[in-house]
Write a protein that binds this DNA or RNA. Structure first.
Lengths: 149, 149
DNA sequence: ATTCTTGCAAATCATTTGCACTTTA
DNA sequence: TAAAGTGCAAATGATTTGCAAGAAT
C-alpha cells in the first residue's frame, strides 16, 4: 500500500524525522510517479501546506537522495527530476509531447544485461538509461514524418 | 584524419559557415574527446581567440547540435557536456575521481541490444546510457570500501 | 545594402547558501 | 535549552535573450 502511514514509517526507518513538510513531500513522490521537478513538487505540496518553502523542498529532496529513498533522474539537462521508485528502471521521453514513461523490464530481466565496452576492472554501481523517441499517441506518431527535415 | 581542414569541410557539408570562431570550437571538440562543458570550451578556445565570447560558444554549440554534428550529453545534472563523436557509445563516470570514460561497444555489438520494457509501438530515436561506479585507479578502488557507510 | 555573425550586458531559471526564527526532543 | 528543522532573502552558476556593432556576400 501507499498510505501516508507507510510513507511516515519509511522515513522513520531510514532515520529521517517525519516532519509535516517532509512527510508531504515524500508522500507526494510516492503517490505521483510523474518524475516531478522540485518546482512541481513545491507547487503541488504547497496546496496543502501554504507555508512551505522551496528551500525546504530542496533540503528534503537532498536528504532523501542521500538516504537512498528517492532517486535523482536526468531526463534533459538543466533540471533534475525525482523518483521515489527505487527499483531498476529506465525512462523514455517522447520528443513530440514531452511525456516521460517508465521502462520496467519484465520480471527477472535486468535493465541492461551487461554494459558493452565496460572493462572488467570497472566497478558498476548504477545505470541511468534514458531513451528518446515517439510515443504511440496519434499526434506523436504523426510528428515522426515532420521531424525528417 | 582530424585536421582543421577536415573540420572546416564538415561544417561546409552541413551548411554551417565556417567562421574562425565556429571552426575553432568545432575543431576543439573533434580533437578533445573530453566531454567538455561550454565553459571549458570557452576557456580553451579563448587562448587562440582572445576576443571569443561565451555567447558565441553557446550559439555555436546549439547550431552544431541542431545540425547533428555534435551531441549533448548529460552526465550529471546542472551542466551539459558536448561530444563531437556521433557514434553510438555510453559513458561511465567514476564516483571517486570524477573522470568520465567513453564506453564503446565492440564492433557489431549495439550499445543496448534491446530496451527491456519498451512496448513495440514506441519509436526509438536515441539512447543515452550513463553508468556510475569506480574506475580501476588505485585511489578509486580504495574508495569503494569507504563508500559503504 | 542586406543578411549573417559576433559579443556585450542584462535577464532568466534552477539550485544553494547564510542566517534568523520556530519547533521539537 | 540545545539540537533539529524551516523559510526568507540574497548569492551562485549555467544558459538565454535583446540588441548594437562588425564582417561577409
Amino acid at each position: 500500500m501507499t498510505t501516508r502511514e507507510d510513507s511516515i514509517a519509511i522515513l522513520r526507518k531510514i532515520g529521517v524525522t517525519p516532519s509535516p513538510q517532509r512527510t508531504a513531500i515524500y508522500h507526494f513522490l510516492r503517490t505521483h510517479a510523474i518524475h516531478p521537478t522540485a518546482e512541481t513538487i513545491f507547487a503541488a505540496v504547497r496546496l496543502e501546506q501554504p507555508s512551505l518553502s522551496l528551500t525546504t523542498v530542496y533540503n528534503t529532496l537532498k536528504l532523501l537522495v542521500e538516504k537512498r529513498a528517492v532517486r535523482e533522474i536526468i531526463i534533459e539537462g538543466s533540471e533534475l527530476r525525482y523518483d521515489a521508485d527505487m527499483t531498476e528502471h529506465g525512462h523514455f521521453k517522447c520528443l513530440h509531447c514531452g511525456d516521460v514513461y517508465d521502462l520496467f523490464p519484465p520480471d527477472g530481466v535486468p535493465l541492461v544485461p551487461s554494459v558493452p565496452g565496460l572493462p572488467d576492472d570497472f566497478v558498476l554501481k548504477e545505470i541511468q538509461l534514458c531513451c528518446r523517441g515517439y510515443c504511440p499517441k496519434d499526434a506523436c506518431r504523426a510528428a515522426i514524418c515532420a521531424a525528417r527535415n
